[in-house]
Simulated scan of single mutants.
Amino acid sequence: MRSVLPVLLALGLTVYCVVSIAQADAGEVRALPRWGWLLAVLFLPLLGAAAYLLAGRPVAGVPGRRTPPGRRPGPKGPDDDEDFLRGI
């Protein structure tokens, strides 16, 4: 059982990173293009996955990050929300 657990953890981390790479916008992935991260994660499972999580994954709240279509950014506080201010 002990020798199976590290293999399962490495497999789970690899699958997580592959799914994350596939879902990320090409312009938001850092340091390498998406296909480069995909190759790194698949051919160097632990090292590539760790590198992607540290240096390649898109970061929330980065200036220039696009808002998904059909959604507007929400207010940052109560004083930024016009509906809240009207109700006072």
Rank of each mutant, 00 (worst) to 15 (best):
P58C: 04
I21T: 03
W37V: 03
G77I: 02
K76H: 07
L44E: 07
R66G: 02
R66D: 08
P78Q: 06
D81Q: 08
W35S: 15
T14A: 10
L47W: 10
P6E: 12
R72A: 15
L8R: 14
W35F: 10
Q23A: 07
P73E: 11
L47K: 12
V59K: 13
A10F: 03
R34F: 01
L47V: 14
A50C: 08
Y16P: 00
G87I: 00
A60R: 15
A31S: 14
P6L: 11
K76I: 05
L5F: 05
I88G: 12
S3L: 08
I88K: 11
P63T: 06
G77V: 00
V15A: 14
G48N: 01
V29T: 06
L53A: 13
V18A: 12
R34T: 02
V18S: 03
V41T: 05
P33V: 10
A50R: 08
R71Y: 03
L13A: 15
V41P: 00
L85P: 00
L9I: 15
L38Y: 09
P78T: 04
P75C: 15
V18E: 11
L85Y: 02
A10R: 13
L5V: 12
D79R: 15
V7N: 02
A49L: 06
A60E: 08
P58S: 03
L11W: 08
V15E: 07
R66Y: 00
R72C: 09
R57W: 06
L47P: 01
L47Q: 11
G74L: 14
S3H: 09
G36I: 12
V29P: 05
R30P: 01
L32P: 01
F43E: 00
P33E: 05
P33Q: 09
P78I: 01
A24P: 03
V19S: 08
P73Q: 14
A51D: 08
T67L: 10
D80K: 12
A60W: 13
E28D: 11
A49T: 13
G61P: 05
G77H: 10
S20P: 00
S3N: 11
L32T: 03
A40Q: 03
P75M: 04
G36W: 09
V59L: 11
D81T: 07
G77N: 14
A26Q: 13
T67C: 15
Q23G: 06
M1E: 10
L44S: 06
T14M: 14
T67D: 11
R65N: 13
P69V: 08
V7R: 14
V29D: 02
G61F: 10
L46W: 04
L13E: 05
A60M: 06
V29W: 03
P58M: 02
Y16R: 11
T14K: 05
G87K: 13
P63I: 07
V18T: 01
L44A: 14
R66Q: 14
Y52D: 04
L46E: 08
T67H: 06
G61E: 03
V4I: 14
K76E: 15
V4D: 07
A10D: 05
R86E: 04
R65F: 00
G70L: 03
V15I: 12
D81N: 15
A49K: 02
P33R: 10
